[in-house]
C-alpha cells in the first residue's frame, strides 16, 4: 500500500512541475504580441508617423500614469470607481444569486418569475440608462443601481442553470443517504451548481465594469470614467490611455482572482487538472 502512495505522490510531483513550466511557457507566448505592438508603437511615435495628438507614446503614458499616482489624483478617482463597482456588484450579484437560488429550487417560482426576468434581460442596458438618470438623478444611486442591474443577470442565469442541472441520479443518492433538506442544499445543490455560479460571478464582474464605465462616462464628477471624459475635452490623450489601461487592469485582476478561486474550489473537476 505504501508503495502505491509513494508512486502516487511522485506522479503528483511530476505533474506539478510540468504544470508550472507549461504555465510559464504559455505566459511567455501570450506576451509576445503585446510587447511587439508596444515597441512598434513607441518607434512609430518617435519617428513621427503616428500623430502625437491622438496616440501618445507608451513612454509618455507611463510618465503620465506616474504623475497621476504621485499627485494623488489617480488614487481618488480609482477609489470612488472601485467603491461604485463593488457596491453595484455586491448588490446585483447578491440579488442575482438569491433569485437564481429561489427560481432554481422551486418549479413554481420559476413559472412566476423567470419569464419576466428573461424579458428584462433582453433590454439593452444603454437604453435604460436615461431612465435611471431621470429616476435616480446623476448621483451615486443611479450609478450603483446601473452596475447592480448589469451584475444581476449573469449571476441569476448561471445560478438557475447550475441548480437545474443537478444530476437526478445524485439526488437519488442524497435521498437514500437521508440528507436533510439543508444537507441537500449545502452538500448537493450548491457544490453541483458551483461551476456555473463561479462562471456567473466572472460574467457579473465584467458586466459590472462595463456598466461602471457607462455610468461614469455619462455623467460624473469623479471616478476613472470621469477622468477619461475630462481628459478628452482637453485633448489629453495620454490621460485617456491611462484611464483605459486602469479599466483593463481592474477587469483582468478581478477576473484572475475569481479564476484563482475557481482553481481552488473546482479542483475536483476533470477540466481543471491541467
Amino acid at each position: 500500500m505504501s508503495t502505491q502512495t509513494v508512486a502516487q505522490n511522485k506522479h503528483l510531483v511530476i505533474r506539478e512541475t510540468t504544470k508550472q513550466s507549461k504555465l510559464a511557457k504559455s505566459a511567455l507566448r501570450g506576451s509576445v504580441l503585446p510587447v511587439v505592438v508596444l515597441i512598434a508603437w513607441q518607434a512609430l511615435g518617435s519617428v513621427g508617423i503616428l500623430p502625437a495628438q491622438l496616440f501618445s507614446s507608451p513612454l509618455l503614458i507611463v510618465m503620465t500614469f506616474i504623475d497621476l499616482v504621485q499627485s494623488g489624483e489617480m488614487g481618488m478617482h480609482l477609489q470612488i470607481s472601485l467603491t461604485r463597482a463593488f457596491l453595484g456588484f455586491a448588490l446585483g450579484g447578491f440579488l442575482g444569486l438569491l433569485f437564481g437560488v429561489i427560481v432554481g429550487m422551486q418549479k413554481k417560482s420559476e413559472e412566476y418569475l423567470n419569464p419576466s426576468i428573461q424579458m428584462l434581460r433582453t433590454v439593452p442596458l444603454l437604453a435604460i440608462t436615461p431612465l435611471f438618470i431621470m429616476w435616480f438623478g446623476f448621483g451615486e444611486l443611479s450609478k450603483v443601481l446601473l452596475i447592480a442591474l448589469g451584475a444581476f443577470f449573469p449571476l441569476y442565469l448561471q445560478t438557475f442553470l447550475g441548480l437545474r442541472n443537478v444530476d437526478k441520479k445524485l439526488y437519488d443518492v442524497a435521498l437514500i443517504l437521508e440528507f436533510s433538506r439543508r444537507e441537500q442544499i449545502t452538500k448537493l445543490m450548491i457544490p453541483a451548481a458551483l461551476p456555473n455560479i463561479l462562471l456567473g460571478i466572472r460574467l457579473a464582474l465584467s458586466a459590472a465594469w462595463m456598466c461602471l464605465v457607462v455610468a461614469e462616462l455619462l455623467g460624473a464628477d469623479r471616478g476613472v470614467g470621469f477622468m477619461i471624459q475630462d481628459a478628452r475635452s482637453f485633448m489629453q490623450t495620454d490621460v485617456v490611455f491611462v484611464g483605459i489601461i486602469i479599466f483593463a487592469l481592474a477587469g483582468k485582476i478581478s477576473d484572475s482572482l475569481v479564476r484563482l478561486l475557481e482553481n481552488h474550489l473546482l479542483k475536483w473537476q476533470d477540466s481543471f487538472k491541467a
Partner: peptide, 29 residues
Amino acid sequence: SAPSKDRGFIFQEHRLFPWLNVEKNIAGN
C-alpha cells in the same frame, strides 16, 4: 413510501459525488 437509511442501495453505476474525495464520499452526511 420514501427512501430510508434502513434500506441501503448500491446503484448499478457508482454515483459518487464528484466534488468529494474518497473518504468524504463514504462518510457523506
